[in-house]
């Protein structure tokens, strides 16, 4: 159940491929029937303003502990084969991936539900803070997350 915090570029496909190979070696090919993934990327706008860069700060020890708690809870709630959480810190530019959550399981229900849980719990509990740089070079902290559910 890897947790990866990166201060350099996050490449979701590469991380997924690498972990997939690890799981195939560990459990054998065909051991899972579902892989659900979510990738969050940086937008070039927020609250009506153009955003040209973002810096992600975190509380390293607490971030790791909270993410470990979240991953453990998911493993208790759903029959998962494995999960993977990766998150960027530092300087991020529009279009770059910020976060990856991935869940492998035998059937899709657990994969979909656990992947969603990982992402929403991360949004609530993991100690990251975003500071945006706008097109006019003004900086501002992002004050709150958008809702995770559409209704």
């Amino acid at each position: 159940m890897p947790i990866v915090i990166l201060d350099t570029a996050l490449h979701p496909k590469q991380l997924l491929d690498e972990h997939q190979q690890h799981l195939d070696t560990l459990h054998g090919q065909g051991s899972y029937g579902a892989l659900a993934t979510f990738v969050g990327t940086m937008r070039d706008s927020n609250e009506g303003d153009e955003v040209k860069a973002m810096r992600l700060e975190h509380y390293p020890e607490m971030t790791e502990k909270q993410l470990a708690n979240i991953v453990s809870t998911a493993a208790e709630r759903w029959p998962l084969i494995d999960s993977l959480v990766a998150h960027r810190v530092g300087l991020i530019l529009p279009g770059e991936p910020i976060v990856l959550t991935a869940v492998w399981s035998k059937h899709r229900a657990a994969a979909f539900d656990a992947c969603r849980y990982l992402m929403e719990a991360l949004k609530t509990d993991a100690t990251f803070w975003k500071k945006e740089t706008l097109a006019n070079d003004k900086e501002r902290w992002v004050e709150k997350n958008t809702p995770g559910y559409s209704s």
Partner: peptide, 10 residues
């Protein structure tokens, strides 16, 4: 002990 504003990761 740590103090911080609402988190905004993800």
């Amino acid at each position: 002990i740590a103090f911080f504003p609402p988190v905004t990761g993800g």
